[in-house]
Design a binder for these strands. Sequence first.
DNA 1: CGCACGATTGACGGAGCTCAAGCCGCGTGG
DNA 2: CCACGCGGCTTGAGCTCCGTCAATCGTGCG
Lengths: 230, 230
Amino acid sequence: MLETEIHRPVETFFHSRFFRGISADELQPLANICKRKQVPAGTCLVRQHSPASQVYSVISGALMLERSSRNGKRQVIGFSFPGDLIGITSNQEFEYSVIALKESHLQVFPHREFLDIIDNNSNFKSRVRVTGCNILAHTLDQLFALGQKKAHERLCFLLQQISLRQPGSNPDVIDLIMNRQDIADYLGLTIETVSRAFTKLKNSNIIHIESAHKVRVIDRLILEELASAH
Amino acid sequence: MLETEIHRPVETFFHSRFFRGISADELQPLANICKRKQVPAGTCLVRQHSPASQVYSVISGALMLERSSRNGKRQVIGFSFPGDLIGITSNQEFEYSVIALKESHLQVFPHREFLDIIDNNSNFKSRVRVTGCNILAHTLDQLFALGQKKAHERLCFLLQQISLRQPGSNPDVIDLIMNRQDIADYLGLTIETVSRAFTKLKNSNIIHIESAHKVRVIDRLILEELASAH
DNA sequence: CGCACGATTGACGGAGCTCAAGCCGCGTGG
DNA sequence: CCACGCGGCTTGAGCTCCGTCAATCGTGCG
């Protein structure tokens, strides 16, 4: 894991959707406090209950947010893709661990300074609020899925999520960066049930499984119908 | 449902924990835009997908937040008690419906003006952020319960939640303001399973059921152990 | 007192969990 | 280049917990 100072033009590093359309002048204060970090696949970027002293912006790669309990149970909270922010919280501690699923590049900001700069710029301010609301909205969707849906419907929910949020232009080819255990812990199921749900969707001609980690959407309408929370 | 202007001293209405310790001078701008609302038990205060144009502060009573899908499934998101804020979002629409479980009194603020005032006062600003984070933290706890816990453990989670958040000084006597269907939809179970979970906890001498809506905690340590997400 | 509705209990079936075996893709080494 | 082994995924068999359906209980209210 290496952290380096930025010595290049500001705009180069702020391609995240969070910063889109904000002028270089406004970005400069953030650039001044920004470092970069590169983490290999499998590393733990943030440990649950550690002090929330950094804010991260994902530049490339993919990460997983998770919570674990003492008795070994784990709930995967979500996945972070390029453009996502991690660690915008007002609590003292991180609510979850963050683990890199692939090698990932991130921007790192000191938490306190980040919020100070955000607070003094109304463009940023509203974006941070929207980001927070989006996170909550996603968590509520997931809650609905876990509380009210069957195994194969939950899987549709996950596929839909990834399909819409993964980088790249073709949402019909889904790149499953996580393994089956991660999916199971995200959906509140076991790996066996996840596997059976995959074959069920395959046999219903809703998806085509090109490999264990690559899925093609055949019938998007039905996928959405099964995934939807409304 | 009646809405009235405030003509009494400011402090009278701002006893919510959200406003605690903030001076009358600072509260005045909020008082100026504040109306009151009283809703009888069973009323729908906010309808899912309606424009998020109000912020509410609960003065007395109890409310339930829920999401419904077209096919009739419902997920209860949480419960609001005196001192809670409802509707702090940056989205255009409410993410959920809000229904009064008892007759409830609320303060009502226009959304836009509320946020403007909040943004110009650093005391408020940090409190709003903390409130948002607490809501997310609670939702994550619930997510963990639905994903990883068995029926009777989920029930312990709910009892623990209410016990800690309900008004009144004695956390060992739990007032179940909601009915069994509400509990079931909160925990992702059916009413029958909820009922069986109650008798299971009763037979294990963890709780005593005084009536269908009043429960006494016998063994708080075990209750916490079963409820905990860590 | 009797009705009505909500809560509880019982019997049964099924979705998903557990345990175990088999399969597949991939990397390593002969 | 192929044999082998390993780890992750899939499939199968049996069991368990929870959902479903139905009957009963209990409490509050007209």
